[in-house]
């Protein structure tokens, strides 16, 4: 009878096998600035996707209200969550990002810009829920203004 080893590990595999889960655990517990930057980037891409969805679904005679509501919710959540996306140390000093240092050096101005976004976002959702097509266009335009307001001052040009 062939005796099989209890643990199917060769000695050189033991170290990575022990280290890898530890690294995952550490990563999950303490997001590095680079990870925060990456997460922020993905959040904004999600936001871009939502804006596109608002544009695409509000055109024509019969807007897709269900899709619009979903998109407007995403926008509303982002307008609140974005307060958490700009932790100290996640600026250009940490890695490649379009976030400008002014976000932290002019924190009061930045907070005001963020507030413009979070003030206007609920209006979009309200117009969608009221099935007010003209209201949606108006709210969307106003929201776009808040995007531009922040980007002009706090986001690096491409």
């Amino acid at each position: 009878m062939i005796r099989r080893p209890l643990l199917r590990f060769r000695p050189f595999q033991i170290v990575p096998a022990l280290v890898a889960p530890m690294m995952v655990a550490v990563a999950a517990w303490a997001a590095t600035p680079q990870e925060a930057q990456k997460a922020r980037h993905e959040h904004y891409e999600e936001l871009g996707e939502a804006f596109k969805a608002v544009r695409d679904n509000s055109r024509g005679d019969s807007p897709n209200w269900a899709a619009l509501e979903k998109a407007a919710q995403t926008v509303l959540e982002a307008s609140v969550d974005q307060q958490k996306w700009f932790a100290k140390g996640t600026g250009p000093e940490a890695g490649k990002t379009r976030a400008l240092p002014e976000i932290w050096t002019k924190a009061d101005d930045f907070t005001a810009a963020q507030k413009m976004f979070s003030d206007r976002a609920p209006k979009l959702l309200a117009a969608v829920q009221a099935k007010d097509a003209a209201g949606v266009q108006a709210a969307f335009k106003e929201l776009g203004g808040s995007c531009k307001n922040c980007h002009d001052n706090f986001r690096a040009p491409e």
């Binding site: 996707e49 596109k52 544009r55 695409d56």
Partner: peptide
């Protein structure tokens, strides 16, 4: 084409993903 903020886009962009 769609711009980075999803705000400005070409007329046929509604047929493709972000």
């Amino acid at each position: 084409a769609v711009d980075v903020d999803g705000l400005e886009s070409g007329p046929l962009s509604l047929y493709v993903s972000f």
